[in-house]
């Protein structure tokens, strides 16, 4: 059928009419004006809803006029909401952003999209200088910070409502610094441990405090990220594995040789989970001596893991 209007053409025309109008247009006005909508009320309505969602998913701010009873009666897109402000980038600045997107790995597809909009440029072939971890929740966190909005997500099995303040990448991880509204206190979350779908809500309600040094609240190590009381972890390492541990722990750790030839490393921590993860990274070259809760935690953790494995083969 030569007369078939492509979906792309139809959506572009819907956007054109929504941008062109100076008042809200009803669905019927739009679908009557724009060619390519199917015959029949129901099919036409469904197609329009899909087009609207497609536009919104691409970040087009489609405004809705709603009656008192909640029924949507009109749509438009205000140019001041839609148009990218002119950043007045000079050629050197455009080239610098182009190089940054090309030399730093994060989200190549989104980076390329940004470059097209900012300067009509593509990423270039250049050796990679840095790779930042790409984490599913990042864009939503960023969106919430940008909109001064609250953020809902699941973290370590608990639903959280937070006021996001800042996003930091340090030591190869992304951290969200936010106020946990349930406790009214500042918390630092690891972005890669956010599970489920994060949701942005109540835009414009978050006031970011100006007197907090966000870089100072990024933990030096994951084991300082816990909310619990500080405890001293005492770990016995087979040499030379203690050296890798001390390299990670830095000046906060002390080490002493023990009579059995192992090296005893002590450091302060607040998170049982993080120390467990750290110690398990050394497999059977490390053993937790203190505190007893951590020792018990590791034993129970490994036993639970082993019990789940398929046909636990026995090995010498």
């Amino acid at each position: 059928m030569a007369e078939t209007v492509s979906k792309v053409e139809r959506i572009l025309n819907v956007l054109a009419i929504l941008l062109d109008t100076s008042r809200f247009l009803s669905r019927n006005e739009i679908t009557a004006a724009v060619s390519g909508y199917p015959e029949g009320e129901a099919a036409c309505r469904r197609a329009f809803e899909r087009d609207k969602e497609t536009l919104r998913a691409m970040g087009v701010p489609v405004l809705t006029q709603t009656q008192a009873d909640g029924v949507e009666v009109g749509y438009r897109v205000r140019t001041q909401d839609y148009f990218l402000a002119d950043l007045h980038l000079d050629d050197d600045e455009s080239a610098a952003l182009q190089l940054a997107v090309s030399a730093v790995a994060l989200d190549a597809h989104a980076g390329a999209g940004a470059l097209l909009k900012l300067s009509g440029a593509s990423a270039t072939e250049t050796p990679l200088i840095a790779a930042l971890p790409s984490v599913p929740a990042l864009a939503v966190i960023f969106d919430a910070i940008r909109q001064r909005a609250q953020l809902l997500f699941e973290y370590r099995g608990t639903d959280r409502v937070v006021e996001p303040w800042a996003l930091r990448s340090a030591r190869g991880r992304w951290y969200l610094i936010a106020c946990d509204t349930a406790h009214g206190e500042r918390r630092t979350f690891r972005a890669d441990r956010i599970t489920g779908t994060a949701v942005v809500t109540n835009p414009g309600t978050v006031v970011v405090p100006e007197d907090v040094d966000f870089d100072a609240v990024i933990p030096d190590s994951p084991w300082d990220l816990g909310a619990g009381a500080t405890f001293e972890a005492v770990i016995a390492f087979d040499p030379p594995h203690h050296l890798g541990a001390i390299e990670r722990l830095g000046d906060d750790a002390t080490s002493t040789p023990s009579a059995d030839g192992r090296i005893i490393v002590r450091f302060n921590a607040t998170s049982i989970e993080a120390v467990r993860s750290f110690v398990l990274g050394f497999l059977d070259h490390a053993e937790v001596l203190e505190p007893p809760e951590l020792r018990a935690d590791i034993i129970a953790w490994l036993a639970a893991f082993a019990a789940k494995q398929p046909n636990g083969k026995s090995r010498p």
């Binding site: 839609y82 990218l84 610098a96 952003l97 997107v101 030399a103 200088i129 864009a139 940008r146 990448s169």
Partner: peptide, 28 residues
């Protein structure tokens, strides 16, 4: 092409991708 005389705003993933890449490079 008056309706499309300016490109659309950056989406959240686009804004983050270019801002974070730039911040990383400037931190080198």
């Amino acid at each position: 092409a008056d309706s499309f005389r300016r490109p659309p705003r950056l989406t959240a993933p686009e804004g983050l991708a270019v801002l974070a890449a730039g911040r990383a490079l400037v931190a080198v």
